[in-house]
């Protein structure tokens, strides 16, 4: 019997080995391990054996069963894997076909610039303030040292709604409002981005509506060198560490001394070209030390407090940074323009 079992084992293992499909393997399993299979038959004949032989043969029969079952299982896994592999092979696709599109929009270039500037100044501890676009004459002009009849009001011909209300011509009224809300005793450190309006005919370089960002710092002992330091840090981050900055005297009614800031021309590296009109410098912003009249009107004692303010135009910055050649592009919303600057 022993020989018979060994023989069956060899026979079965050979068939397992030969099986080339899951079904074929199943047949082998039924043939050898089924209720009517040869091993069962062998076991049935155990009654004829002696008491001593019975457990030995029983043990052997079980081992043979076990080996066959093990072999079938191993083979089964291998066959299944092969079959799956084959099936997956058939499922193969052309990965170069176009994808199902996912719509992606993006921010307007001006928003990107404004948010970049906001984030730069937030990093330097500034907060962001906003204010109304329809302003009172008081906040737009008077509180900024531009009394009625002041000649500098000519500089920014404005859109009036009533005698006392107008479309703000700059975001400076937000500064006046912010200072005014502080009781003349707390420091102010803010920037204010927003839309502003001037009486200009729209053309390649003028727009009756445009964007401005202004900044203000009021505290005890604020120095003009601080303005220079802050603007330098800003310009290097915004335009690149290799750019030089230059301050030169200017005039604004709300600052004294006043400055204009130029950065070295990126195109020619300061040698002079058509972009910088041969000067090597490009004007980027205006600013200065807050005029004592402005501080005083906002309730600060100009002997105790000083401050600096600056303002710039995101359109201009966008035009310089990305070579946009016509300010009207920002407002016509040509989708080909909008899409270009999503990574800006």
């Amino acid at each position: 019997m022993k020989e018979r079992l060994e023989e069956l084992k060899q026979e079965a293992l050979a068939k397992v080995d030969q099986a080339d499909s899951v079904q074929g393997l199943k047949d082998v399993k039924v043939e050898y391990l089924g209720k009517k299979g040869p091993i069962t038959e062998v076991l049935r004949g155990m009654g004829k054996l002696s008491k001593e032989e019975r457990p030995v043969i029983g043990q052997l029969a079980n081992d043979v069963r076990e080996s066959i079952a093990q072999a079938i299982e191993t083979k089964q896994t291998a066959l299944e894997d092969a079959e799956l592999e084959k099936q997956l092979e058939e499922e193969s696709i052309d990965v170069t076909l176009p994808a199902r599109p996912v719509k992606v929009g993006g921010p307007h270039l001006l928003t990107s610039i404004v948010e970049e500037i906001e984030d730069l100044f937030i990093g330097m501890g500034f907060e962001i303030k906003e204010g109304p676009e329809v302003e009172t004459d008081y906040y737009n002009f008077e509180a900024l040292n531009l009394p009625k009849g002041h000649p500098a009001r000519d500089m920014q011909d404005s859109f009036y709604v009533t005698e006392e209300l107008l479309m703000r011509t700059h975001t400076s009224p937000v500064q006046a409002r912010t200072m005014g809300a502080k009781d003349g005793s707390e420091p102010v450190k803010m920037i204010c981005p927003g839309k502003v309006y001037r009486r200009d005919t729209d053309d390649a370089t003028h727009s009756h509506q445009f964007t401005q960002i202004e900044g203000l710092l009021v505290d005890k002992n604020v120095r003009m060198s601080d303005l220079k330091g802050v603007l330098n840090a800003f310009a290097k981050q915004m335009f690149g560490a290799d750019r030089e900055i230059r301050l030169r005297p200017s005039f604004f009614p709300f600052t004294e001394p006043s400055v204009e800031m130029d950065i070295s021309c990126k195109v020619c590296g300061g040698k002079g070209c058509s972009v910088c009109k041969g000067t090597g410098w490009i004007e980027i912003l205006g600013g200065g030390m807050v005029h004592p009249n402005v501080l005083e009107m906002a309730g600060y004692d100009p002997k105790e407090y000083s401050g600096f303010a600056f303002g710039m135009g995101p359109e201009r910055i966008a035009m310089l940074k990305y070579g946009v050649d016509d300010i009207r592009h920002f407002y016509t919303n040509d989708v080909r323009f909008l899409e270009q600057y999503h990574k800006a």
């Binding site: 921010p107 307007h108 479309m167 920002f330 407002y331 919303n333 989708v335 899409e339």
Partner: peptide, 10 residues
């Protein structure tokens, strides 16, 4: 999927 636009207030 929307593009941001900026239009005139006036």
């Amino acid at each position: 999927g929307l593009h941001e636009t900026i239009t005139y207030s006036l």
